[in-house]
Amino acid sequence: MIDIKNISKWYGSFQVLTDCTTTINKGDVVVVCGPSGSGKSTLIKTVNALEPIQQGDIVVDGTSISDPKTNLPKLRSRVGMVFQHFELFPHLSITENLTLAQVKVLGRTKDESLKRGMKMLDRVGLSAHKDKFPGQLSGGQQQRVAIARALSMDPIVMLFDEPTSALDPEMVGEVLDVMVQLAHEGMTMMCVTHEMGFAKRVSNKVIFMDAGKIVEDCSSADFFGKPDERSPRAKDFLSKILQH
């Protein structure tokens, strides 16, 4: 479903991604992990072309993102994305946050998009807050609304860019619960996260990055179950985050 083929990216003369290649199939739950500054967030943002790449290509559901003929907004409307800092639209109510893009981008009617939006809001357990503004919700609630906003667009794949990193510890669970449920329902997901518990339990594939390169690309059973087969860099990373 997503084919990342030998992509490289530079910020000026600094290379952030070096020759990254991987494939994500329908129904996969892929966790991307690695030390900070390793290029995980950049990698996930290249999938829906929020970050342009200078070399290689990414094909999402048959559509190449580097083909100049590709309608990027249309492609992005089919790829859901959840951000570290939620990025709900603060000047709009929760309801408007959920319906805006459905109406303006997908061309759905107000009623249709409201119905769809409310269904997704109910799914993340926040129906009672539909008339509030993002600023009136807690971080965890905002992130769940952000997930509902992305789901309202009926995406073929969901991208999560460190969805729990900006949350207070007691709110991490509620967001992960939504993500676990989503994974069990068969949603194709790519998640940049440090939640190794989530990675272990839910993902079927782990990508480990370091210094802009994909160092490990294996099943999560292998990643966590066979530490001896891992590269020294991944071993080091695992030993640091798993000991706590």
């Binding site: 990025e87 639209f89 303006k104 981008v105």
Partner: peptide, 25 residues
Amino acid sequence: RGQVYAGYAVGMTYSQCMRLVVLPQ
């Protein structure tokens, strides 16, 4: 900047993102 990303991520064009997300704020 994240607001612009969020606008693009839900499929907005540059002008939609400006009109609906950035300029009102």
